[in-house]
Design a protein around this nucleic acid. Structure first.
Lengths: 136, 136
DNA sequence: TATAATTCCTATCGATTTAGTAGGATAATA
DNA sequence: TATTATCCTACTAAATCGATAGGAATTATA
């Protein structure tokens, strides 16, 4: 399951991508427009800022804005920051690899084999989809 | 994340598929061979039996056995029973559909759009992979 | 310089899910 | 009848998730 955090994060990025110009948009504005709990969204935007997707400005007229063009923001990077691993199993993850304690040999593991296929395909989609692609 | 339930279930099915003949295999045997908690595996096999993948026999010489040929068992069916929805978001699920409470229009939702792509690809893999394919 | 507006940060909480355990009921075999 | 195995229900500890609370820090503006 995709977490609400990721879902809301993508919606917020999309909202920002749709703005004309690059003026800061307040949390409150996004929260109301996208029906996202204000405080929860706050923490998500904070995390997106700390990871280089967003810039922010404090005080009156402040808010968040995209640091790159939507076409330059790949979904694979967004997913990794918000959701974590792309793979369904740690033993198949490129960026969050962990060995399975129960499995003596990955090469002959049915689950491993199947999940590698899924990861490759999913990765391909996330790599080849930018924020711009989702903003019609 | 793939649940341990699904992971163990697939491993158990693979183990059974590798057997010569169709003689019942005891829970204990699978549990030890695949390093799966005995009691947990018990509940998983029970669920696979109730959903038509396995047959069982009680008493001495009893155990579990496949009801179909491995090549006739599609991973998509296994996944749906053990893991639930294939889709990462309910509003994109074919078999477990649920509307998002926060989203006024699926057609224009970025998350929806992205997750449909992922679902289609993943579904394709699970549909075109049989238990036999995983048993080398 | 005072005030209001806004992000920043840490901590906490309730609900749900997950992985696993316990213990006995039921059925088949010898 | 004794033994072997599955069947079934209920319980539990730990982790995760979604959300909330409350105030600190910073900036714009009157």
């Amino acid at each position: 399951m995709l977490s609400k955090k990721t879902k809301y994060g993508i919606k917020a990025l999309t909202f920002l991508a749709k703005q004309e110009g690059n003026a800061p948009v307040q949390i409150e504005t996004i929260s109301k427009s996208e029906n996202i709990s204000r405080k929860f969204l706050e923490s998500i935007l904070l995390s997106l800022r700390k990871n280089g997707f967003l810039g922010s400005k404090k005080g009156k007229g402040g808010g968040y804005y995209l640091l790159k063009k939507p076409s330059e923001i790949q979904m694979v990077d967004v997913m990794r920051i918000l959701e974590g691993p792309i793979a369904m199993v740690p033993c198949v993850s490129l960026n969050f690899y962990e060995k399975c304690s129960d499995c003596p040999d990955e090469a002959s593991c049915a689950v491993h084999l199947l999940m590698v296929k899924v990861r490759d395909n999913t990765l391909d989609i996330f790599r080849n989809t930018s924020l711009a692609d989702l903003t019609n």
